[in-house]
Amino acid sequence: MTFREIRSILKKKTVGIAGAGGLGSNCAVALARVGIGKIIVCDFDVITKDNLNRQYYFHEQLGQKKVFALEENILFINPAVKVEPHVIKLNPESIRTIFKKCDVIVEAFDRADMKQMIIETVLGYFPNTPLVAGLGMAGWGDSNSIGMRKIDNLYICGDEKSEIAEQLPPLAPRVGIVAHMQANTVMEILLSN
């Protein structure tokens, strides 16, 4: 498939991204570069200095809401993408409303309890919508431990073992690998339909 053909398919697609941190911001930018039609992104947080070791933001954006800064950065790269930002802390009810029309949903939260919440919500209410989750990416090195496995309509990207800790922070290289693996999985799903 040529890039022109790829773009003509992807521009008709909508991807929902839950979280605009390390996974969400990098995944969204990759999807914007390949020409996804619409990105719906949800996050309640603002950008802090600690985020810049892995998240797709710039120093001058410190203090801004992540979803608005991400919209701005995406439009710098590809103004054809429609971005729908939501400043919200997602819960089962809002996930059902906001992501109702998405072709694929990306789980890009940082906290394990939020990951569990969205996986159970999407599997329960949208069993036919593919969900691409990121699990296990803290630290550095050991690139080959990061993989993707599929359980029905749930796609898990990550090493499924490295939990963040004071001595094992999430950093750009491994978080970026998982975020791009998520974007790659989204492309694979959308181009195979």
Binding site: A112, D113, K115, L135, G158, E163, P170
Partner: peptide, 10 residues
């Protein structure tokens, strides 16, 4: 059976 471990980080 699928058992998925939820791990913090993102």
């Amino acid at each position: 059976v699928a058992v998925i471990h939820l791990i913090s980080g993102g």
